Amino acid sequence: MAGQLGLDPPTMLLCTGGHVSELKQALENSEAVAKCFNCSISTSAILFVIYCSSSVNKSNRTTIQNKLDGFLEQMKLHHFDSGNLSEVLDPIFLYVLVPDLPKR
Rank of each mutant, 00 (worst) to 15 (best):
D100G: 11
F71E: 05
K103P: 02
K67E: 15
L77V: 13
A34K: 02
C36I: 13
A32R: 15
S54A: 10
N38E: 09
Q74T: 15
T63N: 07
F93K: 03
T16G: 14
N84R: 15
V56P: 00
L85S: 10
I92K: 11
I64T: 00
K58I: 02
L14C: 08
N57H: 11
G83P: 03
V49H: 03
N60H: 03
L7N: 06
F71V: 04
S82L: 14
Y51P: 06
L47F: 02
A34V: 06
L94I: 15
F80A: 08
M75Y: 07
G18A: 02
L77W: 09
P10H: 10
H78E: 10
L77K: 14
R61D: 11
L72Y: 04
D90L: 13
N38I: 13
Q25V: 11
E31D: 07
V49M: 11
C15Y: 01
L68C: 05
S21F: 01
A32G: 04
N29L: 04
N29Q: 01
F80V: 12
N29I: 03
V20L: 03
F71I: 02
P91I: 06
I41N: 01
N38D: 14
K58S: 12
L7W: 10
Q74F: 09
D69H: 12
S54V: 14
S86H: 11
L94H: 06
K103E: 11
A32F: 08
P10I: 12
Q65D: 09
